[in-house]
Design a binder for these strands. Structure first.
Lengths: 261, 261
DNA sequence: CGTCGTGTTGAGGCTATTCAAAGTATGTGG
DNA sequence: CCACATACTTTGAATAGCCTCAACACGACG
């Protein structure tokens, strides 16, 4: 069946079953991380990339003034620090919000896989672009929306992502974040986060019970929060099939000759 | 010498001169776009990707309430909508902030290039990760910093990027944005943007004259704005060399056999 | 039983917003 | 060359959203 990670990768680009198995074989399971524990201490120093197999983790950064900004959430199947392969990310860390099962993979092994399997390379590329789309939505919220709408949007996003990996049951999904952490993701103080959540509760948009959110009417929340989940899924069918391009068209032979010089 | 675009790509991954030339040959120059003109109307519909050869462009999105959020700036050498290859980006557009020279490349041609030249694929991947790092910094600013520091940070970022393509002369670089647009990037109202800029001016951090900024002491501005440009450059030397992996190690033959089944 | 982390609520203050108006370029047509 | 329009910058005043400080309630856990 494969790990949640290779399953996600397969949705991004049609991988051969062999390639998917290679991906999983490159992973090494780490001892479980307890809620609040650190998964990556300083991303700039890490020689490994990490994958969340279960639980919720977040990436964050501190400011000089002591503030904390959460930059991303990672749930089952997400790779959390592939960007550190190429880009410096000093001062950032990955922390477990709930108990997490985590696997890791060395830089070198991952680069070998990418080198040998072009579809894997494309899946990683696409993965990065999807994360970018998510961060873009966060930016819109932070820049141009108030606390209520922003909070609604993040709940919608987490709902959609949880749903994609089967974590939504009876309109509820795991939400192990304290209000303080939630506020650190949205740029709000703990106090204001609290008031915003109780406002959402009063509106009947969401309710929170022991580590999970219940959203009675997701469509209503989406309308209110101006949320369209389209950016979370791919534009069309994957473009490759086990390494062979699907767009083979007339003239590609001539074109290939030209490209070789 | 190559276009600013292929030059940038070469800094991301050691491309063969042939591959770089192929990249440029895939570009088709468009008629110049005047300041304020639209480069891409709706990113979700576009069948082409676009590259800025000179000038400044921005990507933006509107909210239902009529607000506008700028999501990225693109200067000479930047590709502005590669993500639209795979990810939906409905309602986003690319607009020229100054007069721009723009080239485009069809989806198909780009995918063929990526398919034939693994180093080009890696360069695009890295490009996406760099953009992600930039957006991450924006998030930190929006969430946890006030208008003054946030503005300083954006100036530092644009300075560093302009410097990388040789656009900084005598401590000044092109800055064709109206205060309103600048505010739309930082999540500020035009009025407050104005007050923030005049505060920066009074502090001697930056001054604005006909379409460019002058920053007398960039190091001072960086300290003030808590800005470290490390995230804008790659972690280490490019990992490939003209399509051949540099990490060829003992055992890779065995590994290749295992991977084929 | 006390402590700690978290959620909740109130009060006052600061930052940024909105509305409004006037000043400054820049361009356009008469 | 002037009258006018348009876009942008600048300033003031009132308001709203969010923050900080502070206090208290509650459950988990030693």
């Amino acid at each position: 069946m494969g790990s949640p990670f290779s399953r996600k990768m397969q949705t991004l680009c049609a991988l051969s079953t062999c390639a998917a198995a290679q991906l999983d074989r490159a992973l090494r399971l780490l001892p479980p991380v307890r809620a609040g524990g650190s998964i990556v201490d300083d991303m700039d120093m890490s020689e490994f990339i990490h994958v969340i197999l279960s639980g919720l983790a977040y990436r964050c950064r501190m400011t000089r003034a002591g503030g904390r900004q959460i930059l991303a959430f990672h749930l089952a199947g997400d790779a959390c620090d592939i960007d550190s392969l190429f880009v410096r990310a000093a001062g950032q860390q990955i922390i477990a919000a709930s108990n997490c099962e985590v696997a890791m993979c060395s830089r070198g092994a991952l680069l070998r896989l990418v080198d040998e399997h072009p579809p894997i390379a494309q899946a990683f590329w696409t993965l990065g672009l999807l994360e970018q789309a998510i961060r873009q939505e966060w930016l819109c919220g932070m820049g141009r929306m108030d606390a209520l709408q922003r909070t609604g949007r993040l709940l919608c996003e987490l709902h959609a992502r949880a749903d994609a990996v089967g974590l939504v049951v009876e309109r509820a999904f795991p939400f192990p974040l304290s209000q303080m952490l939630f506020g650190d993701a949205l740029g709000l103080s703990p106090v204001h986060m609290n008031r915003t959540l109780s406002a959402l509760r009063k509106m009947g948009m969401a309710s929170f019970h022991d580590g999970s959110v219940h959203v009675p009417d997701i469509e209503r929340l989406r309308r209110f929060a101006e949320f369209d989940p389209a950016y979370l899924v791919l534009k069309q069918v994957p473009l490759r099939d086990g390494g062979r391009a699907q767009f083979a068209t007339a003239g590609s032979g001539a074109l290939r000759r030209r490209m070789l010089n």
